[in-house]
Design a protein around this nucleic acid. Structure first.
Length: 441
RNA sequence: GCCGACAUAGCUUAGUUGGUGGAGCGGCGGACUGUUAAUCCGCAGGUCGCAGGUUCGAGUCCUGCUGUCGGCGCCA
């Protein structure tokens, strides 16, 4: 097994020590007597100096002829240097573990990445399984891991119970037009769009629950904010109102930003992120404005909008331009939202809901609110909407046995990753993105 | 569902008013004892996405198809 990493050498803890490293050839150059191999592992890159008179002819030839992405095992001494990495390895033994066939060299070349410049060409998307090894993707995946970890620690520190809902479901959460249909032993089933309805069933048992799970939406969206399979962090909490739920969403997003500042500052900077901006997201309060106020703001900017209209992305963008931190929009008109949002008892035209919009044009990252929690209200809302009751019988049943005020939200984890990492496209944040035109590789 | 672009070597691309498709990177061969995307010399590599059409002649013009990318709607 491997016990030493390039990161250990770079940290200085192995200065002047004998080291045994295993990794992949990032770059290789040199002459017929000396070879400079830049070795890569999961912790970084490091130059290894291979001299013919130190390792012998056979070993030297083997290393010298190894192509980029060949895997390599080396032994040598870590010595400080003024050159690029701060340290380099004077190699005493070197062995190619897994070679690369010269007739089929590693296809992700400098030129393949230069035009992409953070974005992704068709070629890189087709070769995603190999693109994952490159610096930008690796960095993004480390940030992603920290975001997932931060979500878990946030909820667990607050005594939330992690709870799993099925991915095969019979009915829709949203309108229903965006479900993936799958054959199910002669019947039809669907891939879940949200954990919420099943979470509400467990709400009276667990009171505070959360999940991080994939959600599936068959939207033919072609935007930098959409995936057909995305990772959804959702929570549900009993005895809570819209403001309580918002408090949790705000605290969670701040906690994620703070975690990245602690765990991934170098990665953020290598992607061109200004840490001061992330610090602002981690430390600020997030303003809350009502739908009506948002409409007024838009009208004052000359945007044509009618009351009752949902705020689409073009309008969101105009609104978010006024803020340099995330901000909530609350109290949407009832007509713009589905039945499970509770009507505002103070004004039946509105529902007790909220969206959290990320600044810098990244758009909605949280959608949530207070649920319609009494049996009479839910039946009226379903009937008024013209939605059939049948698929929701279990959901209605929950309210027949001790319904309580409760609510929750869903957070788009990939969107949060894209926003905090400053990615151009949500695809950059997930190893194998799925959208309406791509299910491979 | 709607709108707009694009498709030339493994990759990134140049290609003039239609007249025998070039380069850089990568690969291969050679030179080189401290390189930083190493450098230098040489070689191989193309049914110009597919199918029609116009023309003496199409990478180039026209039509259709396919694929991909970008934007909108919808949402996390």
């Amino acid at each position: 097994m491997k016990t030493q990493w390039i990161g250990d050498v770079l940290s200085g803890s192995l200065n002047q020590k004998e080291v045994h490293l295993k990794g992949w050839i990032h770059r290789s150059r040199g002459s017929n007597a000396i070879r400079f191999v830049v070795l890569r592992d999961s912790t970084g890159t490091l130059q290894c100096v291979v001299k013919r008179d130190k390792v012998g002819d056979a070993s030297f030839e083997e290393v010298a002829s190894a192509l980029i992405e060949s895997s390599l095992e080396i032994k040598g001494t870590a010595i400080p240097t003024d050159r690029e990495h701060g340290y380099e390895i004077q190699v005493t033994e070197a062995k190619v573990v897994g070679p690369v066939d010269p007739s089929n060299p590693f296809p992700i070349t400098e030129s393949a990445m230069e035009e992409a410049d953070g974005g992704e060409t068709e070629f890189l998307l087709d070769n995603r399984h190999l693109y994952l090894r490159t610096g930008r993707m690796t960095t993004m995946l480390k940030i992603r891991s920290s975001v997932f970890g931060a979500i878990h620690s946030f909820f667990r520190d607050r005594d939330f119970i992690e709870y799993q809902a099925p991915n095969f479901v019979a009915g829709a959460v949203e309108g229903g037009s965006t479900l993936f249909e799958v054959p199910y032993f002669g019947r039809k089933a669907y891939l879940t769009q949200s954990w919420q309805l099943y979470a509400e069933a467990a709400m009276p048992a667990l009171e505070r629950l959360y999940t991080i799970a994939p959600s599936f939406r068959a939207e033919k969206s072609r935007t930098r904010r959409h995936l057909t399979e995305f990772w959804h962090a959702e929570m549900e909490i009993a005895w809570a109102d819209n403001n309580d739920v918002m408090d949790h969403g705000e605290a969670l997003v701040r906690h994620i930003a703070r975690t990245l500042l602690t765990e991934r500052p170098a990665e953020l900077e290598s992607l061109g992120r200004d840490l001061e901006v992330i610090r602002r997201f981690a430390d600020s309060d997030y303003p809350r404005i009502r739908y009506d106020e948002a409409v007024e703001r838009l009208k004052s900017k000359g945007v044509e909008i009618e009351w009752g209209q949902d705020l689409d992305y073009s309008k969101e963008k105009i609104l978010t331009a006024d803020f340099d931190v995330p901000h909530f929009l609350t109290h949407y008109p009832k007509v713009a939202k589905p039945f499970y949002h509770r009507q505002d008892p103070d004004n039946q035209d509105y529902v007790l809901c909220h969206d959290l919009l990320a600044p810098e044009g990244y758009g909605e990252i949280i959608g949530g609110g207070e649920r319609t929690w009494s049996e009479s209200e839910i039946l009226k809302r379903i009937d008024d909407e013209g939605t059939p009751r049948d698929p929701y019988e279990f959901y209605i049943d929950i309210r027949r046995y001790g319904g309580v005020p409760h609510g929750g939200f869903g957070l788009g984890v990939d969107r949060v990753c894209a926003w905090l990492a400053g990615a151009d496209h949500i695809r950059e944040t997930i190893p194998f993105p799925r959208d309406s035109r791509r299910v491979t590789p």
